[in-house]
Amino acid sequence: MSPRPPHRVEVSRLVPLDAETAFARVTDPRLHPRWIPLTRFEGDPTVAPAPGVAFTMVSGPGARRGRDGFVDRMTTLEHLAPSTEDAVVGRNVVRKDGPALLGTAGLDVVPVDEHRSRVVWWEEAYLAGPWPRRLNAAAVGVFLRGMLALALWRFGREVSRGGRR
């Protein structure tokens, strides 16, 4: 009997950016606090995403002011840029290293045409600890779906308005 596949939460959004530009922006964790509420990036601000690069996101009411919060440590496993010309989907995958969340997450950027791409943000994450993984992944998924939808909506709004780079 093969193991059950992990519980996946996925949201997507069509954005008015070519795939290469969308990928460079949406996969950069240093920019994620612009789209994820109450969250700060911790890591080397001079290092771009690449396999082996570790970083931490801290979320909570005082996180942006340097207070403690929910710690989500990650390591980039895969970072492959898309190509609109060659119809290659870009993929960024991170491993969730705890202490609270384990699993994987990723961003896929699908070229649509020279001016648009579809961003797909997915998570296969669950709480560390003694709880049954499948059950807790489904419960965590409810929260993650809302957070991912809000983050992609904010990203889409920013790029539609010609927002920050």
Rank of each mutant, 00 (worst) to 15 (best):
D18P: 11
D44A: 02
A54D: 08
P130Q: 00
P16A: 10
V15R: 06
L102R: 12
R4G: 01
A81Y: 01
V93T: 11
H79R: 05
H79P: 12
T104G: 00
P33L: 02
R64F: 01
E85F: 09
R34F: 04
G52P: 13
R73L: 00
G90T: 05
L17C: 12
L17M: 09
A139D: 09
G163T: 10
P82V: 06
E10T: 03
F55Q: 05
F155A: 08
A22N: 02
A22P: 01
G162F: 01
G69W: 13
H32K: 05
L14R: 15
L135Q: 05
R116W: 08
D28M: 07
A137G: 15
T104H: 09
G52H: 10
A87E: 13
L152K: 06
V58P: 04
G103N: 05
D72A: 07
D97H: 01
V119L: 11
R133E: 11
V53S: 08
D113C: 07
E78W: 00
P132W: 00
V71W: 01
A139P: 13
T75F: 00
R118V: 12
R164N: 01
R161W: 03
V89D: 03
P3W: 00
D108K: 07
P33G: 11
H32L: 14
T104Y: 08
T27N: 12
M147Y: 13
P16K: 07
E20C: 06
D97G: 05
A128T: 06
M74K: 11
L152F: 07
D86S: 10
M1D: 11
P29S: 11
H115Y: 04
R164A: 15
P29I: 05
E114R: 14
H32E: 15
R65C: 08
A100I: 11
F41M: 11
P29W: 03
R154T: 07
V9G: 02
V119M: 06
